[in-house]
Amino acid sequence: AMDCAKGVGARITQPSKPINKMRGLLRIHRRLPLLIAVPTTAGTGSEVTLAAVITDDETHYKYPINDFVLIPRFAVHDPEFTRGLPASITGQTGMDALTHAVEAFIGRSTTPYTRKMARQAVQLIHDNLLEAYEHGDDMRARRNMLSAAYKAGVAFTRSYVGYVHAIAHSLGGRYGIPHGLANAIILPHMLRAYGDTAAPKLADLARMAGIAPATAQDSLAAEAFIDWVDRMNEALGIPKYVSGIRRSDIPQMAAHADAEANPLYPVPLLMDRLELERMYEVVAGGMFEDEN
């Protein structure tokens, strides 16, 4: 709903420019009418970001538009609006916020402020997501998750995301997979694919959140962090792999992911289109809808 409002505001200020011509960076330019964002999930952080994600129902293409004018003027965080959120959506949107924080933190375009906000978001999610999932009327956990999503949004709107998002957008556009669910499944696979390039920063997060001992080596602490993500997904009822992917769709989805991420996203490890195609095989677990 927040992204829809951003898109409407963009069209109001640019009535002669269709939304697909605003894809990418800084294509709107003009200030939007007053926009007040009231999130009802603790996940996207859209109430504080410069992005709106658009799905083209005809082409099954999902893409972001990014412009500073899309940042809402005000954000209202009231945990009561999330009280009735189903457990499955609580879990998936919470892992969406975790993905924002982690991708912003491990990227190559961070600042002391974005690193601080990402760390705080990871800590809040570590301490509160399972409680909010298992006890939906716990307003303290709900409030802390709203704060986590906000802080993660602040981090990634300044430091951007990475290949998890690029792949998730392509899967969401092609198959209608909810964004938080796709992010949650892809995240541990992509963190493992980044390998040593992301290990020191993942180790930092693991030690900070108490996932690994303060004295743990980077490689072991990073592995502990990824294992914790796996355990969180399992506890939240999120599958290990994305089902329903057709191998014949992978080249086009990888091309979309490549166009979205390269060179915009400051990822720890650059991947070309063919390497991204391999990641679809990984997140599918080698099981494809159009094969026996």
Rank of each mutant, 00 (worst) to 15 (best):
I167M: 13
H165N: 08
E103K: 08
P200G: 12
M208G: 02
I185G: 01
G136D: 00
L270C: 04
M190L: 14
G7R: 06
S159I: 15
F105T: 12
M271T: 04
E47W: 01
M2D: 04
E103H: 06
Q14E: 07
A216S: 14
S159A: 15
G94V: 07
P178Q: 03
E260I: 15
Y63W: 07
L70D: 05
E281C: 08
M287P: 11
A193R: 15
T59R: 03
E103G: 06
I250S: 11
E291L: 15
I89F: 00
A214M: 13
E260G: 12
T49Q: 02
I177M: 04
A193F: 15
S46R: 00
V102G: 10
M2W: 02
G244Y: 04
Q14R: 13
L220K: 09
D218M: 15
L205Y: 05
D290I: 15
I106R: 06
R27W: 03
D218G: 15
A221P: 02
A203H: 09
K201F: 14
E58D: 09
I211C: 10
V48W: 11
G244D: 04
A5H: 11
I19T: 00
M95N: 09
R27M: 06
E275I: 10
I36P: 05
A221I: 15
S147D: 11
H126I: 11
D3L: 02
V242W: 00
W228D: 13
H189Y: 05
N233C: 06
A182S: 09
A198F: 05
G286L: 12
G45W: 03
A206R: 14
V283L: 06
I54C: 00
D56S: 02
A97D: 10
V154H: 08
W228V: 14
T55P: 01
K116N: 15
